[in-house]
Simulated scan of single mutants.
Amino acid sequence: MLVDGMPVRLDARAFDLLLCLLAHRDRVATKDEALLFVWPGRVVEENNLSVQVSALRKVIGPDAITSIPGRGYRFSMPVTDCAPTADVEARKQGEPVADQPTIAVLPFAVLSDDPRVRFLVDGLAEDVIALLARVPGFLLI
């Protein structure tokens, strides 16, 4: 991320929250929407959301995000849309882009009858998918 033309380090969760707020910039993003967007499939406390909002405010300014008490957050800064490139449009449609590496995540084979192991294996597969989804330049199947 660039702020005033200079690169700034931003935590992955804070970046995901920024994407959520930008996607819903025309209205208030509810806390539930933000939690589902940033932590898909996980149960987390609302204070995690507050921490990420605070981190974003430190980087892009205190007036960038407006808190709407009891409802959620809204991105308050002006946003300029750029014309999307063909690659961006293809990615939105889920189509592979030329020379784009593609990764398929297959389920793990469970060789145990213990239900706790199956639960662990399912969690590991979800974590692998979530982590790979954050790697730029890959198409994840």
Rank of each mutant, 00 (worst) to 15 (best):
L2Q: 14
L2K: 14
M6S: 14
P7V: 09
R9Q: 13
A12E: 14
A14D: 08
F15W: 12
D16F: 08
L17N: 07
L18Q: 02
L18M: 08
L19M: 11
L19C: 14
L19A: 08
L19I: 04
C20F: 08
L21W: 00
L21H: 03
L21Y: 07
L22Q: 09
A23R: 13
H24K: 12
R25V: 04
D26L: 04
D26H: 15
R27T: 13
R27F: 03
V28H: 06
A29W: 07
A29Q: 09
D32M: 14
D32I: 12
A34K: 11
L36R: 15
L36D: 15
L36S: 14
V38I: 04
V43S: 11
N47E: 12
S50Y: 10
S50I: 05
V51N: 07
V53Q: 09
V53R: 07
S54M: 08
K58I: 01
K58A: 08
K58F: 00
V59G: 01
I60K: 08
P62W: 09
D63L: 12
D63Y: 03
I65L: 08
I65F: 03
S67N: 15
I68R: 10
P69A: 10
G70F: 10
G70L: 03
Y73A: 02
Y73L: 02
R74C: 07
F75H: 04
F75C: 06
M77C: 05
M77I: 00
T80N: 09
C82W: 03
C82N: 10
A83V: 11
P84N: 07
T85K: 03
T85R: 05
A86E: 15
A86T: 11
D87M: 09
V88H: 12
V88T: 10
E89K: 11
E89H: 01
R91E: 12
R91S: 05
R91W: 03
R91Q: 11
K92E: 07
K92F: 05
K92S: 04
Q93D: 14
Q93P: 00
E95P: 00
E95C: 01
V97R: 07
D99W: 03
Q100R: 12
P101W: 10
I103M: 11
I103Q: 03
I103N: 02
I103P: 05
A104Q: 06
A104R: 13
A104N: 07
A104V: 13
V105W: 10
L106E: 11
L106D: 05
P107S: 06
A109T: 15
L111F: 14
L111H: 15
L111A: 15
S112H: 11
S112R: 13
S112A: 12
D113A: 11
D113H: 13
D114C: 03
D114Q: 04
R116V: 02
V117M: 08
L120T: 07
V121K: 07
L124N: 08
L124T: 09
A125G: 00
A125T: 15
A125E: 15
E126S: 13
E126W: 01
V128Q: 06
I129P: 00
L131Q: 15
L131N: 10
L132R: 05
V135F: 00
V135P: 01
V135Y: 05
P136M: 06
G137C: 06
F138R: 02
L139N: 09
L140A: 02
L140W: 08
I141L: 14
I141Q: 11
